[in-house]
Simulated assay, not measured.
Amino acid sequence: MQYPYVLLHKRMVLLLILTVTLFVILVKLGFWQLARGDEKSQLFEQMQARQAAPALTFSQALDKSQFEDLTAYRLRVKASPVSQQIWLLDNQVYQGQVGYLGFQLMQLDADQPYLMVELGFIAAPHDRRQLPHIDPIVNEVELIGRLYQRQINPLSHKLLAEDGDTVRFQNLNLTEIETAISHPLLAAVLQPDSLPHLSLPHPWQPFPISAQKHWGYAVQWFAMATVFAGLMGWQGVKLLTRNRREAKD
């Protein structure tokens, strides 16, 4: 009669270890998402303060880029196009449309780094072999807008640029763009408030996931932990009841 109790004991121990292990993992994931949400909330407040501050000069932006991310700082420059070549960032989505984000390289002086300027979003043609046309900046222009640096995705960060009059590329990797053009580049992109010859939309998404989404994910992880603990507890009670019944029989 002792054997069922030994078997029951082993089953209960294994069930308890599994429950505690997975419960701890789920709870830790919830707290991690809470921390990420708090971090994003602080960064959002920092960005608001940056956007309220006076616009930087190009020299000030270069200095700051040596020791901090430039996202949300405002910049005012007079710049001329390096060329009329358009760079198209692939696989962008804006208001449900799939398309490209257009860019153009600009320069202030020949001995200074170039500045990548966002021209805006344009929908993709139905035929992927065709690239949309964006009118480039052709003369010196005064630009004012906000800077941003995209977070690097470790799983997909290569430039993967295609040769051509218009360059289609897959990831906004400014370091690899520097290598491709053989010239230094400011470590941020300028999203101008407006352009004199274009009225394309300029999506603003400094973070892939907002603080609110992180907090929402945290609630989901905590809910999963609660439901899992309840299910495992119910299974434990069923197992204990069944083995007691078998022992009586």
Rank of each mutant, 00 (worst) to 15 (best):
F103E: 00
Q104P: 08
Q104I: 08
Q104M: 12
L105M: 07
M106C: 05
M106A: 05
M106F: 06
Q107A: 10
Q107I: 10
Q107G: 07
Q107K: 10
L108T: 04
D109G: 00
A110Y: 06
A110S: 08
D111R: 12
D111F: 04
D111W: 04
D111L: 03
Q112K: 15
Q112H: 10
P113T: 04
P113K: 05
L115A: 05
L115S: 05
L115Q: 02
M116Y: 09
M116F: 12
V117L: 05
V117N: 01
V117G: 05
V117R: 05
E118K: 06
L119Q: 06
L119M: 13
G120D: 07
G120W: 08
G120S: 10
G120F: 10
F121P: 02
F121C: 12
F121I: 10
I122M: 07
A123C: 10
A123Q: 15
A123Y: 08
A124N: 01
A124L: 02
A124M: 02
A124H: 02
P125T: 14
H126L: 12
H126C: 04
H126S: 13
D127A: 10
R128N: 07
R128H: 09
R128P: 01
R129Y: 15
Q130K: 12
P132T: 12
H133P: 01
H133W: 09
H133D: 06
H133Q: 11
I134E: 05
I134P: 04
I134Y: 07
I134N: 08
I134F: 11
I134V: 14
P136V: 11
P136Q: 11
I137C: 04
V138K: 15
V138R: 15
V138Q: 14
V138L: 15
N139V: 15
E140F: 08
V141C: 12
V141P: 03
V141A: 13
E142L: 04
E142S: 13
E142W: 02
L143T: 03
L143M: 03
I144E: 14
G145Q: 08
R146L: 09
R146V: 09
L147W: 03
L147D: 03
Y148S: 10
Y148F: 13
Q149F: 01
Q149Y: 03
Q149N: 05
Q149H: 02
R150S: 10
R150T: 01
R150G: 03
R150M: 03
Q151M: 13
Q151A: 12
Q151G: 08
Q151H: 11
Q151E: 15
I152T: 11
I152C: 02
N153E: 06
P154N: 09
L155H: 04
S156Y: 02
S156T: 01
S156E: 05
S156A: 14
S156R: 06
H157I: 03
H157S: 12
H157A: 11
K158F: 11
K158W: 12
K158H: 15
L159M: 10
L159Y: 09
L159F: 15
L160C: 10
L160V: 14
L160Y: 11
A161C: 07
E162V: 02
E162G: 02
D163L: 09
D163E: 13
G164Q: 07
D165T: 07
T166A: 12
T166S: 09
T166H: 02
T166Q: 13
R168W: 03
R168H: 01
R168A: 01
R168D: 02
F169G: 00
